[in-house]
Amino acid sequence: MYKPIIELKDAAFSAQDKDVIREFSYQFEEGKTTALIGPSGGGKSTVLKLAAGLIVPTEGEVYYRGRGISTMTRAQNMKFRKESSFVFQDSALWANQTLRQILELPLKTHFPKMTATQRTERIVQILAETGYKKDLDIRPSQLSMGEQKLIAFARSMVCEPKLMFLDEWTESLDDGSARRLIDLVKKQREQARTIIFVSHNFRVIKELAQTICMIIDGRLSLIISAEEIATNDGLAKMIEKGIAQ
């Protein structure tokens, strides 16, 4: 029987007396790459955080492999955290830690038996893939925005998650770095990992997404397949115009 990896069922989210997300229902298919698009302030990032279980819906429920995230036991929650990762729009690196500590922390939590040498090897490998070449014993404040994004992306990949949530992860990166990260996501996609991302970049959406969900005013307004975008120029232009707002 088919079971989605993530399902939002009648999910709603309110903050400060404002309905951010309303009656949102959608099933994210395992192994697929889905883009959440729409105008700014429409609720894309909130949907992403709901799907990742980082915030709890005020109504409805979010399910991971058929199990409600808010009702998970601690062990189930830890398993979910191990199998998923989130890249934040503003990197969200821990300011009081060095880059090495930042990258080691998820490994220490989810792979407690891993030795320090193994952790270092994994970190070096992942940083080589992302293209970060600077010192590891510095703090995030000593990095540029683009470099912080690379480290945030490396942190999300360090535990080899099955499910990745990416919130505008290529914004403020130079072309070369953005290209490298897009290629890395492509590689993850080829390994049948589930990727759910938010982006305003039409090129990125067209290149990566297999399904596109348009969110306007907190509601799921349109679901489009990559084939439709590729074959329908009018639709592609409409999407490009819509996400540019």
Partner: peptide, 22 residues
């Protein structure tokens, strides 16, 4: 960090802390 700050959410996401259902 606060639980709803980006740093806090990153800690929750990486399994550093579990917020129980209120």
């Amino acid at each position: 960090p606060r639980a709803d700050s980006p740093e806090g959410l990153a800690l929750i996401d990486s399994g550093q802390v579990t917020i129980p259902k209120r």
